[in-house]
Simulated scan of single mutants.
Amino acid sequence: MTGNRFAALAEDDESVSAVAAADAAPPRSRKPRRRIASPPRNVREPPIFPEEEPFDDDAGPSQHYMVYSSTTIDPSVTKGMYMEWRWPRRCEENPTDLTNPYYIAMIKCGWSAWSAAKKFTRKQSSLDRAPEWCFSPRFGRSRTVLDRPVASVGGYMLEAGTKLFIAGEHEDYYDDDFCIYNDVTVVRPNGEIRIYGYPTDVFPPTDGHSATVVGDKIWIIGSVGYMWTRGKEAQVCILDLATMRMSRHTTTGDDPGWLAGHVVTRVFEDAIEVEVGQEPCPGTTARSGKWTLYTTDFRFLEESWRAVRVRGRLHSVASTSWNGGRTVG
C-alpha cells in the first residue's frame, strides 16, 4: 500500500512538471480558420408594386387578402400623415375621394393597421383607440379586372387591366382593428391609385360578396356584414364606373335571403346567375340553390329573383363562405 501511494505521488509530480513546461513553452501559431459561406436561404423577395402577390385563381378570392407587400413603407410618409388619416372615414358624399399619400403608401407596402401603429406610435395594442385603416390583409374582398376601357368621372380613364378592389374585412371581431369596409380602391395599369368612400346607406360595410361587371357597372351582390346590419333579403349594390357613384337597390320576387360566399356561375346581358352552397352564411336567412337576378334595362322595380331547380345534389361552396363570392368562367 505504501509503495503504491508513493508511486501515485510521483505520477502527480510528473504531471505537474509537464503542465508547467507547457505553460513556459512559446504559444504555437494557429492558422486562421477558414469560414465557409453558407448557401443563401430560399427567401422570396416581395414583388415590386404594382406587381401582385402570387395567388391561386381557382381557390377563389380568399387568396386576395394580401395583394401587395413590402418590408418597408414609403419614407416620405410622416407621423403627421399617419395621425391625420389613421382612422376610417365616415363619408357623406357619394362618392368621397379619399386618395391621400398615407393610404397610397399603405396599399403599396401591404402593411396591417398593427404594423403602422407600431411604427408611428410604438404601441402594439389599440385597446384605447378605434380600429385603424389598412388595405391589407382583408378577407372577403372582391377583385375585378376590367377587360375594356371605361371613361370615368372627370375624364378619368379606366383602361383595360384596371383593377378594382371592393370593401372587405380586416381581422375578426375579437381583434382591436376589426373593421368591415365600404370603400373601393382603383389601381390603374400604370400604378396610379384612387380610393373612394361611400355613405353607409348606399353602400354598407361589405364582405363576402361577388362583383360582376355588366356594361359599365359592377353589380355587388351579397355580404356577410356586421350582425346588426344584416337583413332578410339579399344585399344588392351597383357601382357606376362612369361616375363612381354607388347605389343600393331592393329587388322583388323569390329572394334567396341574406346570401354571402356564393358563386356567380353565369353572366348574361340581362341576368346574373348565382349559386349558394349547402352551407350558407350561418345565422342568416340565405337558402341553398341556384338563383337568377334579372337586370333588364336596369329597371330595378322590375327585377326579380327566380329559383332554378337543379338536378342532383348541389356541390357545397363552404370553403368560400367567409372569403367572398367569386365568378366562375
Rank of each mutant, 00 (worst) to 15 (best):
M1Y: 10
T2K: 12
S15P: 01
V16W: 08
S17M: 14
A18G: 08
P26K: 04
P46I: 07
P46W: 03
A59Y: 04
P61I: 07
P75V: 09
K79P: 00
Y82P: 00
R86E: 01
P88N: 04
C91P: 01
E93S: 15
E93N: 14
T96G: 04
P101D: 09
I107N: 03
C109E: 03
W114Q: 14
A117K: 08
T121A: 08
R122C: 15
R129S: 15
P137Y: 05
G140S: 06
R148I: 06
P149C: 09
V150L: 06
G154N: 13
Y173W: 10
D177L: 03
F178D: 02
I180Y: 07
T185F: 01
N190S: 10
I193W: 05
G197W: 10
P199V: 04
D201N: 14
G215S: 07
I218N: 11
W219A: 14
G222Q: 04
A234V: 11
I238H: 02
D240H: 14
L241W: 13
R248S: 14
H249R: 11
T250H: 13
G253F: 09
D254Q: 11
P256G: 08
G257T: 06
H262L: 03
V267E: 06
A271R: 09
E279L: 05
G283T: 06
A286Q: 07
G289C: 05
K290H: 10
W291I: 07
Y294N: 14
T295C: 11
R299G: 09
F300I: 14
E302W: 09
E302F: 11
S304W: 01
W305S: 01
V308I: 15
V310G: 03
R313Q: 12
A318D: 06
R326I: 05
R326H: 05
V328M: 12
